[in-house]
Design a protein around this nucleic acid. Structure first.
Lengths: 329, 329
DNA sequence: TAAGCGGTTGCAAATATTTGCGTGATCCGG
DNA sequence: CCGGATCACGCAAATATTTGCAACCGCTTA
């Protein structure tokens, strides 16, 4: 009775083949016909058999803001691997300079009928307008997980690194080394993890005057840190390793040394940070565990399990290397 | 019934041919007629057939072997950006641990009806079996470009960094610094760029006994370099920056210093190599130019232009930093 | 294991668009 | 007013796209 696809076909007055082609986004269907079929699909509330969808696509979108910061490729590697083990394939979507917006990617992924989407370090920078595509995902009930990218108001499961702990242990480390004038180099003002670190910093007695916001790049870190160095900080906590590297450069440019004159702490513990000069003391995000958790949450959703839209917080840990030292007497 | 173009033609009172010419901006239509057709087109709300109009998905697959080596994310960024400027979207496909093979990705991409595929540092490791999927691409006539990944026998356009020049300038640099016992740390034996470097090394009088093959990772470099160090080399040329970093570590583990006792040269000039300890002397691949060229070649193919299946060779350049020095007296 | 149920796909017919070529109209310079 | 050149345009052939038919595939059920 439920010649489901056939039913739609009859309603529109086309063959089942055509409906099938529309369903699969195949070429060879005129725009007008496609439109008509899509409408009928909607009207009749067609739902493709679950097993077929899974069988064919098994694609998962992985949306990252950039690839410059080594933490993102690393994360992609973890998530891609974890997905592969579950029989999914990751499609990486990265914002590029002239390029494609996050919303565009969402449409694209939707059109490609992905089984789910993982966002990492996503679109924090927009207040209102940009949430449309998240809502779209929500409406369509597409399994979604957010990593380190709090989106208020929408209840997606989230996996994050605990920024409060991160800021606390960084600050505690510098304090223990005797540093009093501690500064902070953060990402953009509306970047949620940065905001959380700032709050913790303040709560822990940090001087809000010694906080600089910048964009997430080595050069940004350099510029922001230069301002802090001019104000006489002896320790700097950075919101990413790249920013920390920029900070090191700024300190040296000012004729001082790390950690001799200024101690620097990074965040992420991305690859190669033990090869830098000096080896960077940093707060490690457990990206391996986080990536796996994100994938588990996603797969659970895909398997129609009920997943609470909580934020799973992962504990970072301090990795002490050579960029921090006791404050100069 | 919907003789769409014919309808417009009738309304204006011209032939379909004329309407077609207007549509495609072809010459041979008077201004008045063109105007009239354009108006009718507007009035009747004519839409060109899908594939002709704005093209469908405009997806391009970008297949990379890994993301650990920072050169690959960097390359992805360049290619993704260049593609975006041309109105394409890159779908990144990366081999992951448990994961998906290159052949699987090809099938996937084919199924997603991508407009083309760019391979970088692809599947060199297999001699025979693994070429099936390349042939598949060839048969289907899917636009394809290979970067640093010579595949013999199949004529795809290729963009590569000139490994001969790379090896020559690295060797010349060390020789100029007085090094006699120069070793080499290369990738797997069947990795074409490594093989080319090896040949050049030999041709330039390098000692084949001082060449080690390993996998492309810091640890691999460490292990391979340890063997060379034991044999008393004073200079090491590496096939990637990661290998070079591993080599530095091996030298230090042996109780010696870089560049004091052993000089090390990397290859790629990936990000952050000026932040390492010591800052790495390396042979820079012009990935920006290469990425752009690859995209240009791809887009030309997509636009049905005839693209010669040549290998475009890009000249690398030596970036001298602090990991090489005059040989110890 | 066969039969049935969706759904997908190869193929060829139907339909639509583009293009080469020829015709007639128009425009000029003698 | 007469060629000759040029141009716009239609005809029809060439080419490309859309669509339905029917065979087929993978899965479930009898």
């Amino acid at each position: 009775m439920t010649r489901r696809l056939a039913e739609v076909a009859k309603k529109v007055g086309v063959s089942e083949a055509t409906v099938s082609r529309v369903l699969n986004g195949k070429p060879g269907v005129s725009e007008a016909t496609r439109e008509a079929v899509l409408t009928a699909l909607d009207v009749l509330g067609y739902e493709r058999p679950t097993q077929l969808r899974g069988d064919r696509a098994r694609l998962v979108g992985l949306v990252l803001p950039e690839l410059q910061n080594p933490i993102f490729p690393a994360f992609a590697e973890v998530v891609g691997g974890a997905l592969a083990q579950q029989g999914f394939t990751a499609v990486l979507c990265t914002r590029t300079v002239g390029g494609v917006s996050e919303a565009d990617y969402v449409h694209l992924l939707l059109q490609q009928q992905v089984s789910g989407v993982v966002f990492a370090g996503g679109l924090y920078a927009q207040a209102d307008a940009a949430h449309g595509h998240y809502e779209l995902l929500h409406e369509r009930g597409l399994p979604t997980v957010l990593v380190n990218a709090a989106v208020e108001r929408l209840d997606f499961p989230q996996v994050s690194c605990d920024d409060v702990v991160a800021a606390e242990i960084a600050l505690a480390h510098l304090r223990a080394l005797g540093h009093e004038r501690v500064g902070m180099v953060l990402g953009p003002k509306d970047h949620v993890p940065s905001r959380r670190k700032l709050e913790t910093f303040r709560a822990g007695g940090g001087d809000p005057e010694l906080v600089e916001h910048t964009m997430f790049s080595l050069e940004g870190g350099h510029a922001a840190a230069a301002r802090l160095v001019a104000r006489g900080v002896t320790g700097v906590i950075c919101a990413s390793d790249l920013l920390a590297l920029g900070t090191v450069r700024a300190v040296r440019r000012a004729g001082m040394s790390v950690p001799g004159d200024v101690s620097v702490i990074g965040f992420d513990d991305s690859a190669l940070m033990n090869c830098t000069d000096p080896a960077l003391t940093t707060v490690r995000q457990p990206i391996d565990a986080m990536g796996r958790a994100a994938v588990d949450l996603l797969v659970a959703q895909i398997d129609k399990a009920v997943v609470p839209a909580d934020e799973l917080l992962y504990e970072p840990e301090l990795v002490v290397r050579a960029s921090t030292a006791r404050v100069r007497a």
